[in-house]
Measured scan of single mutants.
Amino acid sequence: TFEVERIVRKKIVHGNTSYLVKWKNYSSKDNTWETEDDIRTKYGDLVDDFEK
């Protein structure tokens, strides 16, 4: 199971928000862009903290 360590960046393309996710126990080269809906479902607190 993958676990988010932190959110690195945010991008908005054509009105759709995605977050660059750093995965726990993986290197930064393994970071992936994930949709806001996918990340918010399980890691809403991390998204809220990133947006502060």
Rank of each mutant, 00 (worst) to 15 (best):
F2L: 14
F2N: 12
F2T: 11
F2I: 12
E3K: 04
V4S: 01
V4C: 07
V4Y: 03
V4W: 02
V4I: 14
V4M: 08
E5T: 02
E5A: 04
E5D: 07
R6V: 10
R6G: 07
R6S: 12
R6Y: 15
V8W: 04
V8H: 02
K10Y: 05
K10Q: 04
K11N: 04
I12L: 08
I12N: 06
I12Y: 07
I12G: 05
I12F: 08
V13H: 10
H14F: 11
H14V: 05
H14D: 15
G15K: 05
G15V: 01
G15L: 04
G15F: 04
G15M: 03
N16I: 15
N16M: 15
T17Q: 03
T17W: 06
T17E: 03
T17V: 14
S18E: 10
Y19Q: 00
L20Y: 08
V21S: 01
K22E: 06
K22V: 07
K22I: 05
K22S: 05
K22D: 01
W23Y: 08
W23Q: 00
K24S: 05
N25F: 10
N25T: 08
Y26I: 13
Y26Q: 14
Y26E: 07
S27F: 06
S27A: 09
S27V: 07
S28F: 11
S28R: 06
K29W: 12
D30N: 14
D30Q: 14
D30E: 13
N31V: 09
T32P: 01
T32S: 10
W33M: 01
E34C: 14
E34F: 15
E34Q: 09
T35N: 11
T35D: 12
T35R: 13
T35F: 09
E36Q: 06
E36Y: 09
D37N: 12
D37Y: 13
D38F: 15
D38S: 13
D38T: 12
I39C: 08
I39S: 03
I39K: 01
I39G: 00
R40H: 03
R40I: 09
R40N: 05
T41F: 11
T41R: 13
K42W: 11
K42A: 12
K42E: 08
Y43V: 04
Y43E: 03
Y43A: 11
Y43M: 04
G44M: 10
G44Y: 09
G44W: 12
D45T: 11
L46K: 07
V47L: 14
V47R: 04
V47H: 14
D48W: 06
D48R: 12
D48M: 10
D49W: 10
D49E: 15
D49R: 10
F50K: 03
F50M: 03
E51N: 09
E51I: 05
E51K: 06
K52M: 12
